[in-house]
């Protein structure tokens, strides 16, 4: 009787374990490797310095462009062969021109959410590079006060041949502004989230986000008698992300001109024109075609 009970409990214990193991196996998630995390990205540079290698990526092929560029970084410890998962990274772009040098708007570098090894930031380049005049980006890996690695590269920055997604202008306050479209990258018919960055120049080396401005949008189709869509929402400043966010409605596929008016925090128009029957386009606009 007792023995029987014992066997019985052993039997159930084994059964239970089997179930547990089987279910464990089933739920087994394939470990995400560093290589998996850059699938779909294009490597644009490999920078080796001492024990570390910086891998620089971007989403699409081709060169960096004047305007908004999202840049991804992986950092490898050449000694351990492992990717650094908790790095503090920073960078600094500088353009060396024949007579002077200047920077451009750029972000800090942050970890990409839900990844272990991937970091991300952006540059808004304001000029194209040439043989004589070039951009130099310095990448830093620090731990506390110690610089563990510092590398530079000289990326080629070209004027975008595609549709206009970036505009620099001088406001009525005589300040230089830099407006770059982030989204949509693949617009659709219907309501799109539209986001952009707006920076102003403080001095040659300092560019700061223009806060609490409004970017008014008026999407038009020049091929369709300047047809526009209803219920667009102007872009307003989101202090947590630094992005300007709005809603863009597109009624059909094709070429759209997103006419812009930039108003400062006191609602003064710094740049841009309203569309009327005689003014068919603003002095500043983005373009989308899909």
């Amino acid at each position: 009787m007792k023995l029987k009970k014992k066997y019985k409990s052993i039997f159930f214990a084994i059964l239970g374990l089997t179930i547990l193991l089987t279910s464990c196996n089933k739920d087994d998630v394939k470990e995400v490797t560093a290589a998996d995390e850059v699938v779909g990205l294009q490597k644009i540079d490999t920078l080796i310095k001492g024990n570390y290698t910086f891998y620089i990526y971007k989403k699409d092929t081709g060169n960096l462009v004047v305007g908004y560029n999202e840049v991804y970084i992986q950092l490898k410890n050449n000694v351990t062969g492992k990717y650094v998962e908790d790095a503090t990274l920073s960078w600094k772009p500088l353009m060396h021109m024949t007579s002077m040098s200047h920077a451009c708007p750029y972000s800090t570098i942050n970890k990409v959410a839900d990844t272990k090894t991937l970091y991300k930031g952006y540059f808004i380049f304001i000029m194209a590079s040439s043989d004589m005049e070039y951009w130099e980006v310095t990448y830093d890996y620090t731990s506390g006060k110690d610089t563990l690695a510092e590398v530079t590269n000289r990326p080629t920055v070209v004027q975008s041949t595609g549709k206009i997604r970036y505009k620099s202008f001088k406001g009525v306050d005589n300040t230089s502004y830099f407006l770059a479209l982030v989204n949509p990258t693949s617009p659709k018919v219907g309501t799109n989230d539209i986001t952009a960055y707006l920076y102003k120049k403080v001095d040659m080396l300092t560019f700061s986000p223009a806060q609490n401005y409004t970017v008014e949008i008026d999407p038009r189709m020049p091929d369709m008698d300047n047809h526009t869509s209803p219920s667009n929402v102007n872009l307003t400043y989101d202090s947590t992300t630094g992005l300007y966010k709005g809603k863009l409605n597109l009624t059909m596929t094709g070429y759209w001109k997103i006419n812009l008016i930039v108003r400062d925090a006191s609602n003064t128009i710094q740049k841009g024109d309203s569309i009327t029957s005689t003014t068919t386009a603003s002095s500043i606009y983005f373009e989308l075609e899909f």
Binding site: V189, D223, M224, M252, T253, G254, Y255, E289
Partner: peptide
Amino acid sequence: TMYPKDAANKPMFM
């Protein structure tokens, strides 16, 4: 599908 006079622009669909 509308074909713009400016053939460089993509056709418009709705």
